[in-house]
């Protein structure tokens, strides 16, 4: 029983990171059907930059506060340079473009930080044992911060005028332009949000999952799979899908074989594609974001 709880708890922490990354995919895809394969790299970049900042003597909190806007800026620049100038964007074009961006980012990170994986120092706090399961304080930080950021992003989409404008662009791009909402602005903001959630995921996860130049590959894949559960258009389902995926992975690793951990995401992706490409957990309605 305590094994199960332990696996569930670890899965929840890991899954909330996937959920954040999934929100990044959905934010960008829902506005202009762009699949941003560089999403995972944001987390690696944030983690590695924060590690360097801490190594240079910057306090942990300040390092995090510096790194998040940095990655948001990188994401927005990628949009301005690689996405905005493209005349006829299709999902396929976006995949090829962002694959190139992702490869370039990975190469740059390998050049700057080298091949070895490193971790940020853990956030303050003491590890606990509750009801027979060990609770690392970093995991509590991860769950708390990830849920907070995800809820703020989802709330903003649902309750602020800007968020509604983003949803309007996603649902009815022509009508959005006719009321004066610029799809270029919306795309730029979406990339900003993608940078934000990616950076936060990378920073909070770094102390236990570590950061390396190629960390974004696996993380991006898992975030993408979580996002497909909501057809790449539902933020709520993306967050939920991330958590479910994290828990599933841990259950498989714990009860079957830890070697199969990374196979779970592929299996889920296959199931989604075979059964309901429009999103496993999304009602077949017009509702988006």
């Amino acid at each position: 029983m305590s094994d199960l709880l332990q696996l569930l708890f670890s899965g929840l922490a890991q899954g909330s990171i996937y959920g954040l990354v999934a929100i990044g995919f959905v934010a960008v895809f829902s506005v202009r059907e762009i699949v941003n394969l560089a999403q995972g790299e944001y987390s690696a970049l944030a983690g590695l930059s924060a590690i360097s900042a801490v190594a240079a003597g910057v306090p942990l909190l300040l390092a995090i506060l510096l790194v998040v806007p940095l990655v948001i800026g990188v994401s927005v620049i990628i949009e301005r340079v690689c996405i905005e100038p493209v005349r006829r964007m299709t999902p396929l074009v976006s995949i090829i473009l962002t694959l190139g961006v992702s490869t370039a980012l990975k190469a740059a990170m390998l050049l700057i930080w080298g091949p070895q994986a490193r971790g940020l120092p853990p956030f303050p706090g003491r590890d606990l044992v509750v009801a027979g399961i060990s609770v690392r304080s970093q995991e509590l930080w991860i769950i708390g911060i990830a849920v907070l950021v995800a809820v703020v992003v989802i709330w903003a989409y649902e309750h602020t005028l800007l968020g509604k404008a983003m949803r309007a662009c996603a649902e009815q791009p022509v009508a959005a332009r006719l009321v004066g909402i610029s799809p270029r602005m919306a795309t730029m903001i979406a990339f900003g949000i993608a940078g934000l959630v990616g950076a936060v995921a990378g920073v909070i996860g770094s102390p236990i999952y570590f950061s390396s130049w190629d960390y974004g590959l696996g993380l991006g894949l898992k975030g993408f799979v979580a996002a497909t559960l909501g057809g790449l258009i539902s933020l709520r389902v993306a967050l939920f899908g991330g958590v479910v995926l994290g828990i599933l992975e841990n259950l498989v690793a714990g009860y079957i074989d830890s070697g199969y951990r990374d196979a779970v995401a592929f299996l889920v992706l296959l199931l989604v594609l075979l059964i309901r490409p429009q999103g496993l957990m999304l009602k077949a309605s017009g509702a988006r974001v």
């Binding site: 005028l161 509604k164 309007a168 649902e171 009815q172 009508a175 006719l178 909402i181």
Partner: peptide
Amino acid sequence: LVFPSLSVDDNLSLG
């Protein structure tokens, strides 16, 4: 081309 998942009120505010 109304914004289908948004409320009538939200459609107006986006207008």
